[in-house]
Simulated assay, not measured.
Amino acid sequence: MLFPRAVVCTRQLAVAGPRRFASTSPPAGPAKPSNLPYLLLGSGVAGIATYIYLEKNGVGSKKVEEKKQEKSPLDPQNFVDFKLKKIEPYNHNTAKFTFELPENEASLLPVASCVVVKSSDPEALKDAKGRPVIRPYTPISPSDKKGELTFLIKKYDSGKMTVHIHDLKPGDSLSIKGPIPKWPWKMNEFEDVGMIAGGSGITPMYQILNHALTDPSNKTKFKLIFANLTEPDILLREEFDALKKKYPNNFDVIYTLDKPSSDWTGSTGYVSSDLIKKTFSPASAGEKVKIFVCGPPGQLIALAGKKDGMKQGEVGGTLKELGYTEDQVYKF
């Protein structure tokens, strides 16, 4: 700070003209104490304070690592109320419902798993026996998505829970309990995975696909047969088409419609044995292949057999006719 001032003063003297003082030095007086030690000390203290501030706030060369989240804000033993953050209409009868997670935390839901939900008002939604209506749903948001838990929910006029959820407004709450573990996904456990989904039964398939395909270590090849009534009923179509384009060697999707329009060029009708044989690896592939099935009860029974309560039950239907065993088939 002293040098710039000295330069300015020198220039001012030069402009003013000839010097007006004697060439001899003035008489020596008592020496004045120097301020330099104090200036250096002040600079040192300021520098140390600045360094501490930068290090504390992660601005310096050594950034402070963010504390790793170890626990999910969800509770597998108890229902917890979560506030509805936003609603995004998807099609004529389906919408995305995003709930806010506290402290900007992630859900940390394992793949594959679901949650169960009920009304936050214990008197608002009950069955014929006076018990709370509880339904399972699979979130479509990644498990590491911070601050949000998103569901894609189709409204059924006869479905008490779907009607209730579609009547919610941002700011309202829904009680959620989970996770409820389903299939414990392990990377590269299988060479080929076949998936058959119907309607809103697509969500657990999307959870697995979005998790596995985006992992650089994935080598598993996935084939998805997605059955719907009409073309507008196809959920997450943009997402699946994007995954197919990005991972063409590891993922393919076949859409089939019960009631196609005149300009539909894809597959039509129910999921048949011919379509399965043409799409999936055969049962003779043994432990190298796995088939996941999720959809309406009628479709599930026709393709893979009825579930035994919470248990898988015996394999039946079309998949049994094609030779697939209980070890090769999983029913969501």
Rank of each mutant, 00 (worst) to 15 (best):
R131T: 14
K244A: 13
G269Y: 06
D157R: 04
L213S: 10
E123S: 15
E239V: 06
I208G: 05
N210V: 06
L13D: 07
F280S: 02
E55H: 15
D121N: 15
T230F: 01
N188H: 05
M187P: 11
N210G: 13
F97E: 00
C9Q: 11
G323L: 01
K331C: 09
F190W: 10
D121G: 04
I87A: 02
L36I: 12
F251K: 01
A22C: 10
H166L: 03
Y255S: 15
K154C: 04
F79M: 08
A28C: 06
K221P: 05
T256N: 12
D81W: 00
F190S: 07
F21N: 14
P102V: 03
K71N: 12
F240E: 02
K32C: 10
T318W: 09
K129C: 06
G309L: 08
A124R: 14
A242W: 07
L300I: 13
L168P: 14
G159E: 04
L322R: 09
T203M: 05
T220V: 07
Q69H: 04
K63L: 10
S217T: 14
E238D: 11
P260L: 01
G130D: 13
Y270S: 06
L224D: 00
D75I: 02
E191G: 06
P30K: 15
W183R: 09
V293H: 01
Y90W: 14
I234K: 04
L149M: 07
M310Q: 11
P102L: 03
N228T: 13
D233T: 15
S119V: 04
D252P: 08
L224F: 01
A197E: 00
K86H: 09
P136V: 07
Y38R: 14
K320H: 11
F190I: 04
C114I: 07
S262V: 14
I208S: 04
M161D: 04
R11I: 13
C114E: 09
T162G: 13
V45C: 07
N35Q: 10
A128L: 10
G194Q: 02
Y90P: 01
F222I: 06
V271C: 02
F226Q: 05
V111D: 11
Q328F: 10
L54W: 09
E238S: 11
V59M: 07
